[in-house]
């Protein structure tokens, strides 16, 4: 469970960082909304895949942004190849699927291993 705690800590740090970043918006609700949804829709899907790589937090955060943003290619596939509508459901289901797949793929590293390979 040690690694689960680390994952949680990274997530909270990402959220805190995004709130700090989003302070440029002048509206408190917008600050929270932008930070929360960017975390949920872009960072978490990437974090699920990059966190087990055993990099330090800052590197993981950068890699998670790249991986999470790129995972949006699934939207392109759904829209162009399968003509599935891009709506609220799709926009939540895809990141949720990518996050879950990442966690399942790396489950040994997250939940069962005493130490990650770092």
């Amino acid at each position: 469970m040690k690694n689960l705690h680390r994952f949680g800590f990274s997530t909270i740090c990402s959220f805190a960082l995004l709130i700090a970043l989003a302070f440029a918006f002048k509206d408190t609700f917008a600050i929270l909304a932008a930070a929360f949804w960017y975390l949920a829709l872009v960072i978490l899907p990437g974090l699920a895949w990059t966190y087990p790589l055993g990099q330090r937090f800052f590197q993981t955060f950068l890699l998670a942004n790249l991986a999470g943003f790129a995972s949006g290619f699934i939207y392109v596939v759904l829209d162009v190849a399968f003509r599935i509508p891009l709506n609220k459901v799709t926009f939540l289901a895809v990141p949720a699927f990518v996050t879950l797949a990442g966690i399942l793929y790396w489950r040994k590293h997250y939940f069962f291993a005493e130490e990650t390979e770092r």
Binding site: L21, A22, A24, F25, A30, A33, A34, F36, W37, Y38, A40, L41, V42, N65, F69, A70, G72, F73, Y75, V76, D79, L86, N87, K88, F91, L92, P95
Partner: peptide, 30 residues
């Protein structure tokens, strides 16, 4: 090209923020 606009649309769709701020948010953040 699709990706930035799709990610911004996802962010707008769930946050309720207007699209010009979500596009700009992603650009500034990157």
């Amino acid at each position: 090209p699709p990706l930035l606009y799709m990610q911004a649309a996802a962010l707008s769709s769930w946050s309720g923020l207007p699209s010009w701020t979500t596009v700009y948010f992603i650009v500034g953040l990157f």
